[in-house]
Design a protein around this nucleic acid. Structure first.
Lengths: 159, 159
DNA sequence: TCAAAGGGGACCTGATCGGTCCTGATTGAT
DNA sequence: ATCAATCAGGACCGATCAGGTCCCCTTTGA
């Protein structure tokens, strides 16, 4: 269904939580608790975001993670790419723009290219700051996950 | 990676083949051979496209499938939706527009909505006729699959 | 020196996807 | 009337992989 992976879902949830709290660094366990993401998982996600350069880490006691750049300059596309790899519907474009040898011959070439770019564009148009804007907290029991998937699961009616 | 499923990949390949041949109906096995998709798989995909109303079938001997509507009015979005279900990154939107009870509260609401719509828009902007336009046939050994994934696999260099 | 963190993997497991098969209905041809 | 080709609709299966857990090491403030 062209679904977002949990990894990205969690990543966005945790980054959003980090932005909201806006107090510099927070530890993995804090963020895990804040979002309801399992601690081990949270750690995994944060490490990956760190390697991608979206987060900065402080090791040692009292360590934690902080945004490497202002939230308004971090796009959803970047987050997804950091966690799930390149955004592309077809293997075609995955190698990176220009890498595809038959770029001039590929059957659907221009079209898939267009599609992929449109999708990437859509995701690049939303910043982390945008995502952090709307703060509901409704329908969330304490300690419950704040990722998109589970927020939905807590609804009174909707599946 | 937000990747397209094989089902959709095959579906687009076969529909494209059907459009190119432009001679009314073609049997499942013919289309399977034309695209290199395994026969059983092809049949599965075609049945699904038929149920979705994108294809019309004639049963019995000499039967086959034909487009239910002109190629220029069939969008890639429709094909994907027919085979893979609703196009949505988050479970949120899957229920269909308006079904989400917390639509007005959901954390990322407007943003995810925007993202999903942008993606769907991109896919809805490409018609089957567009996809059938560019006809390469290059790099394809006879009997080999014509879906995006295997076309790439046959390239001289690119992964 | 110790405990609280992050760093980097290995590893397990269950859901899902890609694919096959089987058992009917239909219908043109003989 | 019968047969073979073809679609209809599932059931089923195996391999892959995403989601998740663990472990051990390094760093660093107290």
């Amino acid at each position: 269904m062209i679904r977002l992976s949990k990894l990205s879902d969690y990543g966005i949830a945790m980054l959003t939580a980090l932005v909201r709290h806006e107090g510099g660094q927070r530890s993995a366990s804090e963020l895990a608790e804040a979002t309801g993401v399992p601690a081990a998982m949270a750690s995994k996600v944060l490490k990956q975001l760190c390697r991608a350069g979206l987060l900065e880490s402080c090791r040692g006691a009292k360590g934690g993670y902080g945004l490497a750049r202002p939230a308004s300059s971090v796009t959803v596309a970047e987050i997804i790419e950091a966690l799930d790899g390149p955004i592309a519907l077809t293997a075609c474009i995955e190698a990176g723009s220009g890498e595809c040898v038959i770029e001039t011959l590929c059957p659907a070439r221009g079209n898939w290219q267009r599609i992929n770019e449109a999708i990437r564009g859509a995701l690049a148009g939303i910043t982390l700051a945008d995502m952090a804007e709307t703060v509901p907290e409704a329908f969330l029991l304490p300690g419950e996950r704040h990722d998109a998937a589970t927020v939905i699961a807590n609804l009174p009616e909707a599946g």
